[in-house]
């Protein structure tokens, strides 16, 4: 057990260094973009004089390294600064958006993960049957379609033709949970369709792979029914790759859903990031990207720890 703790501590340490490197890369990337915040905000209305006044007010006339370290000094103690464009503290800006993104991701995951694993197990169990083929074709079709297209199709059939669900998912704080679940159902369903295939195929492949192992042969020879062979013997050993692919998809649900946010007008963090990049609003871009990076690091860590914990050989190394 101590080994696991050691791994977690080590990985978290490495994670912090990764975040630092990422922050430098992001800063550099924003610097490389043509134009700066003053020009982006004033747009067509930018005269030289106004741009200069705005740069001075926001401290954009300082050299790049000075600005980076000023930001870093704050970030180390948890102060991510204020948005340059609107003056609102970054944490205040990101907080509610990130909550929304998490809500949508968890909602989609709660539907998608059990369905995907169940379908994967069943597809492995009835390998090459009609069920297996149909499940494969349907999930592969949904993963191959661009997500905005899936979104539009769902809107057309479930919102416009039959008004079962609202076409736009704008949330407000005073909504009840049931209301929110209803409002957010269409974007969640879109995401489910996008991520199910990946997880289901991985589960199916991992199990089928194991079915060729000698110990499965042994289980079969002693007369264990096929169903039990899979759930008791194959599945426990298949968890490691499955957990990995689930973690990867969860990370995708948090970081890669900007198109779904746009189609359903969902106030998540992706839209915030896009807006901030357009305006060259460095503190917000930086904070959004770090949140994304931290999500990946933590989920990867969770996946590794998960695969260790589900594997007795790794749990009790000799």
């Amino acid at each position: 057990m101590n080994d696991v703790l050691q791994i977690i501590v080590k990985r978290l340490g490495l994670g912090l260094i990764t975040l630092l490197v990422i922050s430098i890369i992001i800063f550099g990337a924003v610097e490389l973009l043509p134009g700066d915040l003053a020009q982006a905000i004033l747009g067509q209305a930018a005269t030289e004089e106004t741009v200069a006044a705005m740069r001075e007010e926001l401290g954009l006339d300082r050299p790049a390294p000075v600005r980076y370290f000023a930001w870093l000094k704050g970030a180390v103690v948890g102060d991510f600064g204020n948005s340059l464009a609107s003056g609102i503290p970054v944490t205040e800006l990101i907080g509610p958006r990130f909550k929304n993104t998490l809500f949508l991701a968890v909602y989609a995951a709660i539907i998608a993960v059990p369905i995907a694993i169940m379908l994967g197990v069943l597809a492995a169990l009835y390998r090459n049957s009609v069920f297996d083929r149909v499940a494969n074709v349907l999930t592969l079709t949904s993963i191959s379609s661009p997500e905005f297209f899936l979104g539009y199709i769902l809107v057309l059939f479930l919102a416009v033709k039959n008004s079962l669900f609202p076409a736009i998912s704008s949330l407000s704080d005073d909504m009840s949970l049931a209301d929110k679940l209803h409002r957010v159902f269409l974007p969640a369903l879109t995401l489910v369709l996008v991520v199910v295939a990946h997880m289901m195929r991985m589960t199916r492949a991992a199990i089928i792979n194991l079915l060729a192992s000698p110990y499965i042969e042994m289980a079969r020879l002693k007369g264990t029914p096929q169903r039990k062979v899979i759930t008791h013997h194959a599945l426990p050993n298949a968890w490691a790759p499955v957990i990995n692919v689930v973690a990867l998809n969860l990370a995708y649900l948090i970081t890669g859903v900007v198109l779904v946010e746009v189609v359903f007008v969902y106030p998540g963090i992706g839209q915030l990031l896009v807006d901030s990049v357009t305006k060259r609003d460095f503190p917000v871009v930086q904070a959004c990207c770090l949140v994304f990076a931290a999500t990946y690091i933590l989920l990867n860590l969770a996946a590794d720890v998960g695969s260790i914990l589900t594997n007795p050989r790794l749990r009790h190394p000799k």
Partner: peptide
């Protein structure tokens, strides 16, 4: 006032009476 940057979302919302 709701921001609906996507043209399709705007139109759908108007047709379904969400705005």
């Amino acid at each position: 006032l709701t921001v609906l940057n996507d043209p399709n979302a705007r139109q759908t919302a108007l047709i379904t009476g969400d705005v």
